[in-house]
Design a binder for these strands. Structure first.
Length: 131
DNA sequence: GCCAACGTTGGC
DNA sequence: GCCAACGTTGGC
């Protein structure tokens, strides 16, 4: 199973919105590198929900419930379906940056990438920091 | 094919 | 509010 990190601005779609909805179509990604990651996702993979801008923290775990298909809003792009697993953390960007084991996270290396892979050891490290 | 200009993201 | 990073566009 693979792990991922997906960003959302709480002002447009928050973790609470996801819990309320019970699952959502993760669409609107308009970046080629992010699209490649979406296409690589398999049903059952897990992903951190990263709340950007206001929180700047990992606040929950999601599960991929359907693999990539054309984004209904623009079929040049793709979307996956996700559901909330549980709230964690928050593990802040500040804490992630302060942890040497996480220095190579894509979140850090390419801060603008909205869908990024997470390595197994990084996943465990972040979970450990969530307490 | 190069690169300057511009737009967007997102941290600070 | 500012600006760095990055992607895209368009003139040449």
């Amino acid at each position: 199973m693979a792990y991922w990190l997906m960003k959302s601005e709480p002002s447009s779609y928050s973790w609470d919105d996801l819990v309320r909805d019970g699952g959502t179509e993760w669409d609107g990604v308009r970046n080629n590198a992010a699209r490649l990651h979406l296409k690589a996702m398999k049903k059952g993979d897990e992903a951190f929900f990263y709340a950007s801008m206001t929180d700047k923290a990992v606040v929950g775990i999601m599960r991929i419930t359907r693999e990539a298909q054309p984004d209904p809003k623009d079929t040049d792009w793709v979307s996956v379906r996700v559901e909330p697993v549980k709230a964690i953390g928050p593990v802040t960007l500040k804490a992630i940056k302060a942890e040497p084991k996480l220095a190579k996270m894509e979140l850090i290396r390419q801060s603008r990438l909205s869908v990024a892979p997470v390595r197994d050891d990084e996943w465990k490290t972040v979970l450990g920091m969530a307490g």
